[in-house]
Design a protein around this nucleic acid. Structure first.
Lengths: 202, 202
DNA sequence: ACCTGAACACCGTTCAAGT
DNA sequence: ACCTGAACACCGTTCAAGT
């Protein structure tokens, strides 16, 4: 053993990420352990630390992948129809991803401990990219409004969409199935948009 | 040592809960350890297991206390004014609690591992009580509507309020301070209510 | 009956030692 | 240079032993 050189460091990094993601999908973040990952990829614990600083770093990268996948699905929805339709489609795409990839999605919002290092810049950029998709549609909806207004509306609506998904899918709301969540989402989005465009100051 | 009988089991239970809550407030859930709690209350690890089944059970009880405190603050807002005002006040009360008791609030939404036992009935009842406060106001707003419609609207709005708080306070949204979150919340609630009451089928 | 504290299994992380 | 695996500190949980 030692000095096997069967894989490059980049390859090992990918293998670790793949194995970690599989575990999250099947058993949730709680089941993510270095020893298990090492076993899964056929290396030993020490090797994990050649490619990641520590567990928190590894987890951040798994989350990064999830953010990329969400972004891909959001960007796959048609962005050229009527803005209201696009926004509804984005909301549906979001809840669909969340329900299909429940453990990975839920993991993104796990509270981080207060003392571990702040999120790296590349991670924050991935989050911003997600917000931007909705913001663009909101901006299309109200071209005359200052950019700041659109931004605030996008934040309110994204927050709303996410909150409905969260409370529904984690069972804090007694919603039955995905269809039920979708209906609640549609109610939120349609009501918000109708009320927003009818605002006294717009 | 042993057989000290300085405190009843009920007293010890309260001491454990108090100590655990203090740790959560100061350092977050991540810092919650049996050995630390034991040290804080002047007993040893084994004693904790006289009054709680395990760590998960203890955490559920700490969360239960937080739910009670939130309920108390929501029930303290005037429920007899115009429903729109009441709902806005509830939203403000919620975000205020969340920002003042950030670690305790955030702890409620920590993802539980997939395999640990389901939440006990008394816990679910506390959650239902929270939802009910908003539902009552929504129902006042649309007396002629069937109860199911009010329920769905309450779920959508609660989800929305919570989502804005979550994304804002945990920094997923680039909101600056509580005042900024409050403004976003007001935008969401006012737009939703305006749009909801103007719905084509109401 | 109440409480202790050593023991156990498991965890993330490090690093001297091997090739 | 790459990789191992024993060692370390720490974790939740149990339970025989003490009074």
């Amino acid at each position: 053993m030692a000095r096997r050189s069967e894989h490059s460091l980049e390859e090992i990094k990918e293998m670790v990420l793949d194995a970690a993601q599989s575990t999250v999908i099947e058993e949730g973040v709680g089941a993510l352990k270095v020893r298990k990952i090492a076993l899964d990829i056929g290396y030993t614990v020490g090797s994990i630390y050649m490619v990641f600083d520590n567990m928190a770093d590894l987890i951040t990268h798994v989350k990064g992948r999830t953010l990329d996948d969400i972004a891909a699905e959001l960007n796959a929805v048609d962005a050229n129809g009527p803005p209201e339709h696009c926004i509804l489609a984005l909301a549906r795409a979001y809840v669909n991803f969340a329900s299909r990839h429940f453990n990975r999605w839920r993991m993104i919002f796990e509270p981080r401990s207060a003392d571990d290092p702040p999120l790296p810049g590349w991670y924050q950029q991935k989050i911003d990219a997600l917000f931007n998709v909705l913001e663009v549609q909101i901006a299309r909806l109200a071209l005359s409004l200052p950019r700041e207004e659109a931004k605030r509306a996008a934040r309110a609506l994204w927050g709303g969409i996410h909150g409905v998904c969260w409370l529904s899918l984690t069972g804090k709301l007694d919603a039955v199935g995905v269809k039920d969540v979708e209906n609640t989402l549609v109610l939120l989005v349609e009501s918000f948009l109708r009320g927003w465009s009818a605002a006294p100051d717009s």
